[in-house]
Amino acid sequence: MTPQHHPGDDLLIAYAAGSQDEPVALVVATHLALCPRCRKEVERLEALGGVLLEEQEAEPLAEKSLEQALARLDEAAPDEPAQPSRQLARRSAEVDPVVPRPLRDYLGDGLDQLDWTAFRGLEKVELLPEFPSFRTRLMRIKSGTAMPTHTHDGSELTLVLAGGFSDESGHFVRGDVAEADPSVNHQPVADPGEDCLCLAVTDAPLRLTGPFGRLLNPFLRI
């Protein structure tokens, strides 16, 4: 079954336009690997980018521009793909059927080798620490466990990779994306039967709102 909960048009547009920060783009791109519908949608949005580029006013090139380019045509092609400016942890050689590219390339040696920290039925790993205005986490929630009730100062984007969870807005399984904005106060509960593995990106720290949550809040940043 293919995903039923997709990223909103605004997220797909920002992905096609290339205006998202890497953590958000990682969630969208990993969803694309699991969702033929959104792959199609992004293909259309890139076609739109081409159309808008054609309609773009021209900015005259420097006088020698063409000449310089022609002089370089016989140079050897640069390595392909072009070296990313920041190396990923490791390009994984192993295929993990649960974790598709591009996320797999951010995980190094695979799920089991990650530096998981555990707290009350929840295990997590921080990813992309180089983007401090986001919290990018891989989370494993024990089957049947309820997360603390929380709301957000910013938005939260969650992609399910295995298992599933439910909250007030619906039931989410592999490939589904849940979007929560500051108005959402929710308590996700993992499905019984299988641990729920998901990739979550928040662009501001969560605020815990349940009675225990409020108490824990200064100490615990889930």
């Binding site: 783009a25 791109a29 690997a33 969702c35 295929v95 598709p100 797999r104």
Partner: peptide, 12 residues
């Protein structure tokens, strides 16, 4: 730029 790999066997 995170992108899909069309050859990835894990691609659905």
């Amino acid at each position: 730029r995170p992108e899909i790999d069309p050859e990835d066997p894990a691609l659905v």
